[in-house]
Amino acid sequence: MAFSLDIPPYIFEQYNKGIEIDIIAAALSHKGHTLRPLYFPLGRIPIAFQNNLVDAAMSDVGTDLMSYGGFYAEPAVVYDNVFITLKKRNLVINSPADLDNLTIISFQGAEKRYPQWLSKPFEEKRFYGISDQLTQVKLLNLERYDVVLSDRYIFKYFAKQLKYEDNIQVSRVDEHQFAEIEPQDYRPVFKSEKIRDDFNFGLKKLKESGKFQAIYDHYIE
């Protein structure tokens, strides 16, 4: 299955662990399947699926994979993406126009996920997609970019990492909620309809047993 490079606390590539990996592996194991993660830059995940390099993908990253034989499953996790700015900037982001003249850094493929907000910055080369989300936090803190688009838990994780490992204090930030969470954006995709169904069954059992929440609690706490 194609996964992104490191997205702690959801994906720890070095250990084949994390919230998302653990949940998907546990769901698949209910019907006897074993997960083998393969890691790609976020923007290459749908390409790996299209070129049959993998049997499944953690999500379609904004590319419809049904025409490439994809069977969409129920979402294992949902990312709560927000715009993040330095508090001292006093920026207000309530509409796409509020991003005019601002530079934005985010995950690869974000411009496809949120075209209403990011098409214009992307066309004007004010948007930069990068998989390394620790770098996103650093660049915002250094004021090289005005806005980070990130899952709020991912940003907090890396801000803490900078503080405790690199002794860098990240400036206080504001979070700007700009879109309703859409779970359908984060559905895993499988080449096999049967394995998709097996995954959905296992995911349902995980939630009923309490193990789903236990995996979240293990990493968040």
Rank of each mutant, 00 (worst) to 15 (best):
K211Y: 09
E111F: 02
P188Q: 05
P115M: 04
I21G: 02
D55T: 00
K17L: 04
D22V: 00
P41M: 06
Y15G: 06
E180S: 11
L42W: 07
Y153L: 13
Q14H: 04
F201W: 10
W117R: 04
D64S: 13
Y10L: 08
K211L: 12
E123N: 14
Q116G: 15
N200C: 12
E182I: 13
D22T: 03
A214D: 00
D80H: 15
L139D: 09
N141Q: 06
K112T: 09
Y153E: 09
Q133T: 08
V189C: 13
K112F: 12
D22L: 00
P75I: 01
D132V: 07
S95F: 08
F71Q: 04
S171K: 11
S59I: 01
M1S: 10
E175S: 04
I84V: 15
I24G: 00
S4K: 07
S67Q: 14
V137N: 08
I45G: 12
Q169L: 14
K138Y: 14
K205C: 06
F49N: 13
Y72D: 10
A27Q: 07
S67H: 14
L35Q: 01
E143Q: 15
E123F: 11
K87L: 13
P96S: 02
L5F: 04
L134E: 11
E175F: 15
L42K: 10
